[in-house]
Simulated scan of single mutants.
Amino acid sequence: MLHIDALTKRFGEKTAVDSANIEVDKPTMIGIIGRSGAGKSTLLRMVNRLSDPTEGSIVFEGENITDLKGAAKRNWQSRCAMIFQQFNLVPRMDVVSNVLHGTLNQRSTFATLFNLYPQSDIHHAIEILDRLGIAEQAPKRAEALSGGQQQRVAIARALMQDPKIILADEPIASLDPMNAQVVMQSLRTIHEEDGRMVIANLHTLDTARRYCDRVIGMRDGRIVFDGTPAQLTTGVARDIYGAGADFSEAATSTEIETLDRSAKQAAEAVA
């Protein structure tokens, strides 16, 4: 389905992504991990064509995505939805209208200007919100919702595009552990029930292991690991993060049980 070949992005003398190669032959949930600045976000932005590669190619179902321009490029961005860490919602707009923004690439300039939506789209938006457990929030302003609820609204907006691929750039980085699990389970359910490819940049190893079928590790712009969650050992993680023997997975955990255990151990050490 997706073939990424020698994909490279340079900003002046800095190489953000260095000759990345990824093959995905079926809808899969993939987690990309690595330190800040490893090139994870730049990689996703190139796949979505928010950023142009310096070298290399992206081919999806036989179509060279790196060659697309104008309307063809916008059509690709409809089929390849992007979810961001900061949600990118319109704060003072109601939730259902934010979800309907997922159809903007499919609507006329007139309809967009006057905020006109078919009843079928409105009903579909509410159905998606219901699927994500937040239909009762539909009439509220987005700014009135919690962070976890806002991220689920962002997921609903992505689903309105009916995409083949969902790219999630640190979707749980600003969320508490409980909301992080709700959001990741939502993405996992969408992958399993809809058969959509999901690629998520993640900052926690336990999240990658729990929700993803495949994990890719990046360091200094290069892919240094590509394997199953079971193969993501602590030793491999040290190599990905460039950490020493004192590396602790608990420091990156979103699992409530792990956090509680770490807090207890810290308290016992002080005592």
Rank of each mutant, 00 (worst) to 15 (best):
E192W: 02
A251M: 12
F114D: 10
R196Y: 13
L232I: 01
I166N: 00
L202Y: 06
R196D: 15
N201S: 04
E143Y: 06
G217H: 05
Y117Q: 10
Q137W: 15
D239Q: 14
D121V: 07
L129T: 11
R157F: 10
Q181C: 09
G133D: 10
R131P: 13
L132V: 12
A144C: 10
Q151V: 13
T234M: 00
A138N: 09
E143G: 00
L159P: 09
I216E: 00
I166P: 01
M184A: 10
R188E: 11
G147K: 04
R209P: 02
A154W: 15
A142Q: 08
N179H: 14
A158M: 11
R152M: 02
I190F: 10
E192Y: 05
G244Q: 04
I240T: 02
T233F: 04
I216V: 01
L145I: 09
T189F: 10
V215K: 05
R222G: 00
M218R: 07
R210I: 01
T204C: 07
D162H: 11
K140Q: 12
P171M: 11
G147C: 08
V236G: 01
T207F: 07
P171V: 10
Y241Q: 05
G221D: 05
D130Q: 12
L175V: 08
A135L: 14
F247D: 07
L167R: 02
N115D: 14
T207D: 05
S120P: 05
Q119R: 12
I128K: 10
G147A: 07
E193Y: 05
H124T: 15
Q150L: 08
P229R: 09
Y241D: 03
R219Q: 01
I223V: 06
F114N: 06
A243M: 08
Q161S: 03
N201H: 08
I240M: 02
A237F: 04
H191E: 15
D213Q: 09
L116S: 11
I134F: 15
S186N: 12
R196S: 13
P163N: 04
L116E: 14
L205Y: 05
I134H: 14
A125T: 06
A158F: 14
I199Y: 11
H203M: 03
A156S: 03
P118R: 15
Q151H: 12
R222Y: 00
A243R: 04
I172Y: 12
L129N: 12
R210C: 02
T228E: 01
L129R: 14
T234E: 02
D194Y: 15
E127L: 05
T207Q: 13
E170W: 08
A245W: 02
E170L: 00
Q119C: 05
